[in-house]
């Protein structure tokens, strides 16, 4: 197989800058070969079951298998990996876990605030991919954070890809999350030196400094 060409550094820098100037708290140019793919990551969406597992066409047990993700990564040389910071008062708010699983907004507005941060990640992925094509890259692949059903189709009862015509309502914006595709985003972030904390339902805002949502765009 012919190896994918190495992208020009100047063009990669344009994409990295784009992420930072449009809302990313940090962005790095990384080698696609350094992106860890692990079967355990996809299983963590299913054991214990995430509230969205089986409800979104991009989430396990649907979506990309780890083998498919590896095949995709092999077609690329480099990627833009970015993060959007979320204050611990929002992402580790006491009521947030219940709000997320029930879909009911909390009084403090943390559900919609977190949704806004997720939307920013989706928008940045879309923006970087469009810009990449504009400056001469011929293909891109994007990965976001969180499930797309709650972010892009919050008001819809079901994912149309699973229950309906079979076609996604937002094919331009919707991309799989890194975790749903088996990409170990936590490890990748830690390897780069970003400070990332395990945040779960029992967390309190005082327990962690901050949270972060991450996005990834492969270009080639």
């Amino acid at each position: 197989m012919i190896p994918p060409p190495t992208p020009e550094p100047e063009k990669m820098e344009i994409l990295r800058n784009l992420a930072v100037t449009h809302g990313a708290s940090g962005a790095s140019i990384i080698d696609a070969g350094d992106i860890p793919v692990d079967p355990r990551v996809r299983f963590k969406c299913m054991i214990p079951k995430c509230y969205m597992s089986g409800r979104c066409g991009r989430c396990p047990p649907y979506g990309y298998s780890t083998e498919k993700t590896i095949r995709i990564l092999n077609n690329y040389e480099q990627a833009i990996f970015f993060h959007v910071r979320v204050e611990s008062a929002i992402i580790a708010a006491k009521s947030l876990s219940n709000s997320i699983t029930s879909g009911q907004a909390d009084e403090a507005g943390n559900l919609f605030s977190l949704g806004g941060h997720c939307m920013l990640v989706y928008s940045l992925v879309r923006m970087i991919r469009k810009k990449a094509m504009k400056i001469g890259f011929c293909r891109t692949e994007g990965f976001s954070a969180s499930n797309c059903k709650d972010i892009l189709c919050f008001k819809k009862k079901t994912c149309r890809e699973l229950n309906g015509s079979g076609e996604c309502r937002n094919p331009e914006m919707s991309v799989p999350s890194m975790e749903s595709a088996g990409i170990d985003a936590f490890r990748l972030a830690a390897k780069i030196g970003w400070e990332i904390f395990p945040i779960g339902a029992q967390c309190e805002p005082e327990s962690v400094k901050r949270g972060m949502l991450m996005g990834l765009v492969l270009v080639g």
Partner: peptide
Amino acid sequence: SAATVAKGCTAPYKSRP
């Protein structure tokens, strides 16, 4: 519920296989 297409688990994060 999790066995139904497009529906999720009624006890997310609690049930284990």
